[in-house]
């Protein structure tokens, strides 16, 4: 009994460290990828080679900054915002399998749990944006409320196709099912497309970064944030991106399973590779696309993604009836 408790605590600690380290790595990676796309070098000085220590330096700097809470803000909401932001980014990882026997909590309703946790992210932006008592933040908060609400629907609908194929809501089972047949990206190309678009909108990245929209809303909901609180939002953004990528890798690319019989590479490495593939795609999209407008964003969700996701569910259903 004692051993089991210790083991789960240890697993949690490992997961926590993993996310924080990866979020920092992602920040560095984003700088390098964007620099590569934009014909620049990116960070080169702090830590050689390739400025690997830049994120560490940044976090240290942000830690030592003055903690400013502007006098006219709603203090409770203002303080609560960044904390709520970080929570779902961590909680999603509880159910994601890193390897055959490595999952913090193999919930039998894993997919449902993720869909529920994902919605909390909206709260953080809304609390922060409303609590800041700033006009830019207010517009941003309203935008993100509309955006996240609209994209939650196609995201979950896209997951349903996968769940139908695997016949289970548990992520471990979904991976096992893919091991037996093939990666679900082959069976669910439409679902994957919807998932990718809605997912990018869900983590607020260009072309859907309307709540941040630096050229319109200065910085959106975190206009008034600085220092560590801002860093929490920033880390949460990358934590969310990582979680989404891990989810995509798990649901559509077979998670930790090795393709083409390349079993000698450990499952954990495969999981990371697939996750980072999505991270790279998201960065690629971010640094090449312009931003859409708020009404176009809504149109895209309600008039395109949701019908396509519904069609996907219907097709999946027909496919299952015919082939089984």
């Amino acid at each position: 009994m004692m051993q089991a408790v210790l083991w789960s605590v240890l697993k949690l600690l490992i997961v926590l460290t993993f996310i924080l380290l990866n979020a920092m790595l992602l920040i560095w990676l984003e700088r390098k990828v964007s620099a590569w796309i934009q014909l620049r070098l990116g960070p080169m000085r702090v830590g050689r080679p390739q400025g690997w220590a830049q994120s560490i330096a940044d976090v240290l700097k942000l830690l030592f900054k003055e903690d400013i809470v502007p006098s006219r803000v709603d203090k409770v909401l203002f303080v609560l915002g960044p904390i709520i932001a970080f929570m779902p980014a961590l909680m999603v990882w509880a159910v994601i399998p890193f390897g055959p026997n490595f999952v913090s909590a193999d919930l039998n309703i894993g997919v449902l749990y993720i869909a529920a946790i994902g919605s909390i992210g909206l709260m953080s932006i809304f609390t922060g944006g409303w609590g800041s008592n700033n006009k830019w933040s207010l517009i941003s908060a309203m935008r993100s409320a509309a955006q996240l609400f609209s994209y939650e629907v196609p995201l979950v609908l896209a997951l349903i196709g996968v769940v139908m194929l695997a016949g289970s809501l548990s992520l471990t089972d979904i991976i096992r099912a893919q091991q037996e047949t093939a990666w679900y990206i082959l069976y669910q190309p439409l679902g994957f497309l919807v998932f990718l678009i809605a997912g990018i909108a869900e983590v607020n990245r260009t072309p859907f970064d309307l709540s941040e929209a630096e050229s319109e809303l200065v910085a959106g909901w975190h206009v008034e944030y600085s220092g560590l609180r801002w860093a929490m939002y920033f880390l949460a953004e990358y934590g969310n991106l990582l979680a989404l990528s891990a989810l995509a890798a798990t649901l559509f690319l077979g998670g930790w399973t090795a393709p083409f019989g390349l079993d000698f590479i450990p499952p954990f490495v495969w999981f990371l590779l697939k996750t980072y593939l999505f991270v790279f795609v998201a960065m690629w999209i971010r640094w090449t696309f312009p931003r859409v407008r708020i009404d176009q964003l809504m149109d895209l969700s309600w008039k395109f993604l949701i019908p396509v996701a519904l069609l996907n569910i219907a097709l999946t259903g027909i496919g299952i009836t015919i082939f089984s």
Binding site: S34, I37, Q38, L39, R40, T206, P207, D209, A213, E214, S215, W287, T288, F289, P290, R291
Partner: peptide
């Protein structure tokens, strides 16, 4: 102008 539309990369090109 690319920057105004939220695309930062064209600026550097």
């Amino acid at each position: 102008f690319g920057n105004d539309l939220g695309a930062f990369t064209p600026f550097l090109y």
